[in-house]
Design a protein around this nucleic acid. Structure first.
Lengths: 197, 197
DNA sequence: CGCCGAGTTGAACTGAATCAAGAAACGTGG
DNA sequence: CCACGTTTCTTGATTCAGTTCAACTCGGCG
């Protein structure tokens, strides 16, 4: 049951038993997060990770000119946290807030340590999450380096079709590293070429 | 001794004892890697991580048009591996090869597991490495999203002054996500503005 | 000496940003 | 249920950063 949900995380195939999933979800506090409220602000120290039960969160930074740049979306069954801040005790470079009204599980660092010590395989599960996380970040870097905006947009549609429908285009543009105007034109262009082909 | 070297990894402050460092470095095989030879190719399954004792390696991918895009440089005292391939058993999307003649420690997955079980704090050390890795990848994404090439270049100089001097400019450009020509112009521009100020 | 790869420079081009103005879509209160 | 303001999306004109392609320079090395 619970394990099924975990399997959705980051497009699948992390091995987790019901025991692990239940242990994690039963021993953390639920929290309701209204749309627009922050779980973490730039400059703060992060003390928790979050598992999204319902809703949609995001992690983003702001540049010199105050422009927002989205690092990650976190829909249902995803984890979101600033591990740099949480594990290396650095002030966070990122904000985490809710795009929709959401409910999350608050996962304290201790809890991970405890479960890792108690439940066989839990430490491994945690490691797999981290590896998967690294893989997805690497993919993102490679795409930003290698491909123009319209290709990154096409990949986004493939990879996160659900997110696409739930967030304003401005945020998709921010995630892709382009302006809303550019995204609008890219969409127009794609629609045209689709019509004529 | 050994711990000092580890402390250099990823600009510092990972806590590791001599016991951990010695255990790791004494129980893995040394390997000499001549300039230009691959430790991992696109499509292969990665079975090891590598710790660079001397020399300089890189991890890169190629795009549609055969252009290379460098994900990471690994000079002395750095780790380099494709964790996605190693831990999630996926064919690697990246190449790893030596930019200079190098010597590396071959770190098998089992070894990490063994040491984690045997040595107190080793699992934690490994986790810290992963968190640090994630932090550096996130920084990279944010920079690619947020800042123009000349700012990314300035940051590169600050962060990796040693690497800058040891690799051809083409590779720096590839790391930054721009063409060699563009980097050449950026450098010229910076030199000029420095002269006139 | 002549070659070769790395770096530079120039000119034309292109993808994306910017600035500004409208057009839709949406939620809220009357 | 309509009227309102607000936010989101689109469109246009212009500018700019970075690419492309081609020619050229320079330093190392056989």
């Amino acid at each position: 049951m619970k394990s099924l949900e975990f399997n959705n995380f980051l497009t699948g195939n992390i091995s987790v038993t019901d025991e692990m999933a239940n242990a994690l979800l039963s021993q953390c506090n639920k929290l309701n997060v209204a749309k627009g409220t922050w779980l973490l602000r730039q400059g703060e120290l992060s003390k928790n990770a979050y598992y999204v039960e319902t809703g949609l969160l995001r992690q983003y930074s702001t540049d010199d000119k105050g422009k927002e740049h989205i690092l990650q979306f976190a829909p249902q069954n995803w984890f979101i946290s600033n591990r740099e801040s949480e594990y290396l005790n650095k002030p966070s470079s990122y904000y985490i807030d809710a795009i929709e009204d959401s409910t999350v599980c608050v996962i304290k660092k201790d809890l991970i340590d405890n479960l890792s010590a108690k439940i066989t395989g839990f430490a491994d599960f945690n490691l797999q999450l981290l590896h998967k996380h690294i893989a997805s970040l690497q993919k993102r870097i490679t795409q930003l380096q290698s491909y123009p905006a319209h290709q990154r947009y096409l990949d986004f549609i493939q990879t996160y079709p659900d997110v696409l429908l739930r967030v304003p285009q401005t945020m998709v543009a921010s995630y892709l590293g382009i302006t809303p105007e550019s995204l609008s034109r890219i969409r127009k262009e794609l629609a045209n070429s689709h019509r004529t082909s």
